Measured scan of single mutants.
Amino acid sequence: RPFRVCDHKRTIRKGLTAATRQELLAKALETLLLNGVLTLVLEEDGTAVDSEDFFQLLEDDTCLMVLQSGQSWS
């Protein structure tokens, strides 16, 4: 499924495809050149996407933000 993913400053944006939350996090880690533990949130309001069940309910092309440890949505 297609998703739009950005870093916490919204300066890097990438289109990625993934079937699972874990797959998307792995691709974001590599594509956005990030490291460490990542958190996935909705870009629009910062809602945490912390379960596979919730991830599977997201629509195609949902905009997501990837946060590294110590970063927060704004």
Results as ranks from 00 to 15, higher is better:
residue 47 T to E: 08
residue 41 V to S: 03
residue 41 V to M: 06
residue 29 L to N: 15
residue 43 E to V: 03
residue 47 T to L: 06
residue 36 G to Q: 05
residue 51 S to H: 08
residue 19 A to T: 10
residue 24 L to Y: 00
residue 21 R to F: 07
residue 55 F to I: 00
residue 44 E to D: 07
residue 17 T to L: 12
residue 38 L to F: 05
residue 39 T to S: 11
residue 31 T to E: 12
residue 7 D to T: 05
residue 47 T to M: 09
residue 34 L to K: 05
residue 35 N to M: 08
residue 50 D to Q: 12
residue 10 R to K: 04
residue 59 E to V: 09
residue 20 T to N: 09
residue 28 A to H: 00
residue 57 L to V: 11
residue 74 S to H: 10
residue 4 R to Q: 07
residue 64 L to E: 03
residue 62 T to M: 07
residue 9 K to S: 12
residue 71 Q to N: 05
residue 54 F to M: 15
residue 69 S to K: 14
residue 48 A to F: 09
residue 73 W to K: 03
residue 65 M to P: 05
residue 59 E to I: 09
residue 4 R to C: 07
residue 43 E to P: 02
residue 42 L to D: 02
residue 65 M to H: 01
residue 54 F to Y: 13
residue 60 D to N: 13
residue 52 E to L: 03
residue 60 D to W: 09
residue 47 T to R: 11
residue 66 V to K: 02
residue 63 C to K: 12
residue 9 K to F: 06
residue 56 Q to M: 10
residue 72 S to A: 03
residue 29 L to S: 15
residue 38 L to E: 14
residue 68 Q to V: 09
residue 35 N to H: 10
residue 50 D to S: 09
residue 20 T to K: 01
residue 44 E to Y: 07
residue 70 G to A: 05
residue 48 A to H: 07
residue 66 V to L: 08
residue 22 Q to P: 06
residue 51 S to P: 05
residue 22 Q to N: 13
residue 63 C to M: 13
residue 42 L to G: 00
residue 61 D to M: 08
residue 65 M to T: 01
residue 30 E to P: 14
residue 15 G to P: 14
residue 60 D to Y: 08
residue 52 E to M: 00
residue 30 E to M: 12
residue 13 R to Y: 15
residue 44 E to L: 07
residue 43 E to D: 12
residue 33 L to C: 15
residue 72 S to Q: 11
residue 63 C to I: 07
residue 12 I to H: 10
residue 28 A to T: 10
residue 46 G to P: 02
residue 35 N to F: 08
residue 29 L to A: 14
residue 4 R to S: 07
residue 31 T to K: 12
residue 19 A to Y: 12
residue 31 T to L: 12
residue 52 E to H: 01
residue 17 T to H: 06
residue 27 K to R: 11
residue 32 L to R: 00
residue 30 E to Q: 12
residue 1 R to F: 03
residue 51 S to D: 13
residue 63 C to G: 12
residue 42 L to Y: 06
residue 4 R to K: 04
residue 72 S to K: 13
residue 3 F to K: 05
residue 45 D to S: 10
residue 31 T to I: 15
residue 6 C to T: 13
residue 42 L to F: 06
residue 7 D to E: 02
residue 27 K to E: 09
residue 51 S to G: 10
residue 68 Q to F: 04
residue 3 F to L: 09
residue 51 S to M: 03
residue 53 D to G: 07
residue 72 S to E: 13
residue 25 L to C: 10
residue 24 L to F: 11
residue 50 D to M: 08
residue 49 V to W: 00
residue 11 T to I: 11
residue 4 R to L: 07
residue 11 T to L: 13
residue 20 T to P: 01
residue 61 D to E: 14
residue 49 V to K: 00
residue 8 H to R: 14
residue 11 T to Y: 09
residue 59 E to P: 14
residue 39 T to I: 07
residue 70 G to P: 05
residue 68 Q to M: 12
residue 64 L to R: 00
residue 38 L to M: 10
residue 50 D to F: 02
residue 16 L to A: 07
residue 74 S to T: 14
residue 41 V to K: 04
residue 20 T to S: 13
residue 65 M to F: 01
residue 6 C to Y: 05
residue 41 V to R: 04
residue 66 V to Q: 00
residue 49 V to A: 02
residue 4 R to Y: 15
residue 11 T to M: 15
residue 59 E to D: 12
residue 70 G to C: 05
residue 18 A to G: 05
residue 11 T to K: 13
residue 60 D to S: 14
residue 57 L to H: 09
residue 65 M to Q: 00
residue 39 T to E: 13
residue 44 E to S: 13
residue 72 S to H: 12
residue 60 D to Q: 13
residue 52 E to K: 00
residue 55 F to M: 05
residue 13 R to F: 15
residue 16 L to Y: 04
residue 59 E to C: 06
residue 37 V to T: 13
residue 73 W to R: 03
residue 63 C to W: 06
residue 70 G to N: 12
residue 6 C to L: 06
residue 51 S to W: 01
residue 2 P to S: 11
residue 11 T to A: 15
residue 68 Q to E: 15
residue 16 L to W: 02
residue 45 D to W: 04
residue 4 R to H: 10
residue 48 A to S: 13
residue 4 R to G: 05
residue 16 L to K: 01
residue 21 R to S: 06
residue 65 M to S: 02
residue 25 L to W: 04
residue 20 T to F: 04
residue 12 I to Q: 08
residue 40 L to D: 00
residue 50 D to W: 04
residue 40 L to Q: 03
residue 67 L to P: 01
residue 57 L to A: 14
residue 27 K to N: 11
residue 49 V to H: 00
residue 57 L to S: 14
residue 16 L to F: 09
residue 66 V to S: 01
residue 28 A to Y: 02
residue 2 P to N: 15
residue 57 L to G: 14
residue 25 L to R: 03
residue 56 Q to D: 11
residue 22 Q to T: 11
residue 7 D to Q: 00
residue 14 K to Y: 08
residue 52 E to N: 06
residue 8 H to K: 05
residue 34 L to V: 09
residue 6 C to K: 03
residue 66 V to W: 01
residue 22 Q to A: 10
residue 12 I to D: 12
residue 21 R to V: 04
residue 58 L to Y: 01
residue 50 D to Y: 05
residue 49 V to R: 00
residue 46 G to A: 03
residue 35 N to L: 05
residue 43 E to T: 00
residue 33 L to T: 13
residue 6 C to P: 06
residue 62 T to Q: 07
residue 7 D to W: 01
residue 16 L to M: 13
residue 63 C to H: 12
residue 13 R to H: 13
residue 9 K to W: 05
residue 6 C to I: 08
residue 5 V to I: 15
residue 73 W to P: 04
residue 49 V to E: 08
residue 35 N to E: 15
residue 3 F to S: 05
residue 50 D to A: 08
residue 61 D to A: 08
residue 61 D to Y: 06
residue 34 L to I: 08
residue 1 R to C: 04
residue 17 T to Y: 15
residue 19 A to P: 07
residue 63 C to P: 14
residue 36 G to I: 01
residue 25 L to V: 08
residue 51 S to N: 08
residue 29 L to P: 15
residue 30 E to Y: 05
residue 5 V to Q: 01
residue 34 L to Q: 04
residue 15 G to K: 10
residue 14 K to F: 08
residue 27 K to G: 11
residue 25 L to G: 03
residue 59 E to G: 12
residue 64 L to Y: 03
residue 31 T to A: 13
residue 46 G to H: 03
residue 71 Q to F: 03
residue 15 G to L: 14
residue 24 L to R: 00
residue 20 T to Y: 02
residue 39 T to M: 11
residue 28 A to W: 06
residue 53 D to H: 14
residue 36 G to S: 08
residue 64 L to M: 09
residue 48 A to W: 07
residue 69 S to E: 14
residue 56 Q to E: 13
residue 66 V to D: 00
residue 15 G to H: 11
residue 34 L to H: 02
residue 20 T to D: 13
residue 13 R to Q: 15
residue 9 K to R: 09
residue 52 E to I: 04
residue 26 A to P: 03
residue 13 R to I: 15
residue 73 W to H: 06
residue 46 G to T: 06
residue 22 Q to L: 07
residue 38 L to W: 04
residue 26 A to R: 08
residue 15 G to I: 15
residue 7 D to H: 01
residue 73 W to Y: 07
residue 54 F to A: 14
residue 54 F to S: 13
residue 67 L to H: 03
residue 71 Q to V: 02
residue 17 T to K: 08
residue 69 S to I: 09
residue 1 R to W: 01
residue 19 A to M: 15
residue 6 C to F: 06
residue 50 D to I: 04
residue 29 L to R: 12
residue 53 D to E: 11
residue 26 A to S: 14
residue 23 E to I: 05
residue 25 L to Y: 09
residue 16 L to D: 12
residue 42 L to N: 08
residue 33 L to Y: 09
residue 16 L to V: 12
residue 74 S to F: 06
residue 74 S to K: 12
residue 26 A to M: 14
residue 6 C to R: 03
residue 7 D to N: 10
residue 9 K to C: 10
residue 29 L to V: 15
residue 6 C to Q: 03
residue 58 L to G: 03
residue 6 C to E: 00
residue 58 L to F: 01
residue 71 Q to R: 02
residue 71 Q to L: 02
residue 55 F to C: 03
residue 7 D to I: 08
residue 71 Q to G: 02
residue 52 E to C: 04
residue 36 G to N: 11
residue 5 V to K: 01
residue 72 S to M: 11
residue 57 L to T: 11
residue 63 C to E: 10
residue 8 H to Q: 09
residue 54 F to C: 14
residue 13 R to T: 15
residue 52 E to S: 00
residue 66 V to I: 09
residue 4 R to A: 12
residue 43 E to I: 00
residue 10 R to M: 03
residue 61 D to H: 11
residue 12 I to V: 14
residue 69 S to V: 10
residue 44 E to I: 08
residue 45 D to K: 01
residue 63 C to L: 11
residue 60 D to M: 08
residue 3 F to Y: 12
residue 70 G to S: 06
residue 44 E to Q: 10
residue 71 Q to I: 05
residue 7 D to P: 00
residue 56 Q to C: 11
residue 22 Q to E: 08
residue 57 L to F: 10
residue 34 L to R: 02
residue 25 L to K: 10
residue 50 D to T: 08
residue 26 A to H: 12
residue 46 G to D: 01
residue 6 C to G: 02
residue 55 F to A: 08
residue 59 E to W: 04
residue 42 L to M: 14
residue 33 L to I: 13
residue 9 K to E: 09
residue 12 I to Y: 13
residue 52 E to F: 01
residue 58 L to Q: 05
residue 53 D to K: 11
residue 57 L to I: 09
residue 68 Q to P: 05
residue 67 L to A: 01
residue 63 C to T: 08
residue 49 V to C: 07
residue 42 L to S: 05
residue 17 T to N: 12
residue 57 L to D: 11
residue 16 L to T: 06
residue 12 I to F: 12
residue 10 R to V: 02
residue 40 L to P: 07
residue 2 P to L: 15
residue 64 L to F: 13
residue 35 N to Y: 07
residue 69 S to L: 10
residue 34 L to P: 08
residue 28 A to V: 10
residue 42 L to T: 12
residue 65 M to I: 02
residue 17 T to P: 04
residue 73 W to S: 03
residue 46 G to N: 01
residue 74 S to N: 12
residue 56 Q to R: 13
residue 41 V to L: 04
residue 21 R to A: 06
residue 61 D to G: 10
residue 23 E to F: 02
residue 33 L to E: 15
residue 24 L to G: 02
residue 53 D to R: 09
residue 22 Q to F: 10
residue 59 E to L: 07
residue 40 L to G: 04
residue 29 L to W: 11
residue 36 G to P: 09
residue 8 H to T: 06
residue 59 E to N: 09
residue 14 K to M: 15
residue 62 T to P: 02
residue 47 T to G: 07
residue 20 T to W: 05
residue 69 S to F: 06
residue 53 D to T: 09
